[in-house]
């Protein structure tokens, strides 16, 4: 599989707003997700779903999802932002999405219509769904360290 064929293969995916290729990776941006079409595209290309990164964009806002697909020698990142804190589930089409989406539901309170089982995966008893949204959006940013030369003064 070459870097030339991969972007072309994804260009026809519904909702594509951008395709960026680099040496060993490809980034596809979508404005909406059609799971069946995405699953069919990756099946055609023989890609494996390696991971899903969820990043809350605001405490009460949306979540950016990046689906990391693995080709033999490169990575394909497919990015999409939730709508109304919801995204259709990939889990009925791709098994590795089952745990990945459960975890994101647990931590960031994203709904995944069509998911077979959104019971808690990581969330301990007594914690609310989306327990990591607020803390992750408000994570403290420590100041830069004092240079060693200044410490000696």
């Amino acid at each position: 599989m070459t870097a030339v064929t991969l972007p072309a293969a994804f260009a026809d995916l519904p909702g594509v707003t951008g395709v960026r290729a680099s040496a060993n990776s490809l980034r596809i941006d979508l404005d909406h997700l059609e799971p069946a079409a995405l699953a069919a595209a990756v099946a055609r290309l023989g890609l494996r779903l390696g991971a899903v990164t969820g990043t809350p964009l605001a405490p009460e806002g949306e979540t950016e999802m990046v689906y990391h697909f693995v080709a033999l020698d490169r990575l394909v990142d497919v990015a999409v932002v939730s709508r109304g804190r919801s995204l259709p589930s990939l889990a009925p089409h791709l098994k590795p999405a089952v745990w990945a989406e459960r975890e994101i539901h647990d931590l960031f309170d994203v709904a995944f219509p069509g998911h077979p089982d959104l019971s808690p995966l990581m969330r301990p008893e007594g914690f609310a769904t989306g327990m990591m949204r607020g803390p992750m959006c408000g994570a403290r940013r420590p100041s830069a360290p004092v240079p060693a030369a200044d410490l000696s003064e």
Binding site: G50, T55, D77, W99
Partner: peptide, 23 residues
């Protein structure tokens, strides 16, 4: 698999960790 995002600040903006045992 690690997905790391920097906004140029002193800390990472996001670190996603996907270990082999998770799959």
């Amino acid at each position: 698999l690690y997905h790391v995002v920097s906004d140029g600040g002193p800390t990472p903006a996001r670190v996603k960790i996907r270990t082999p045992s998770f799959v």
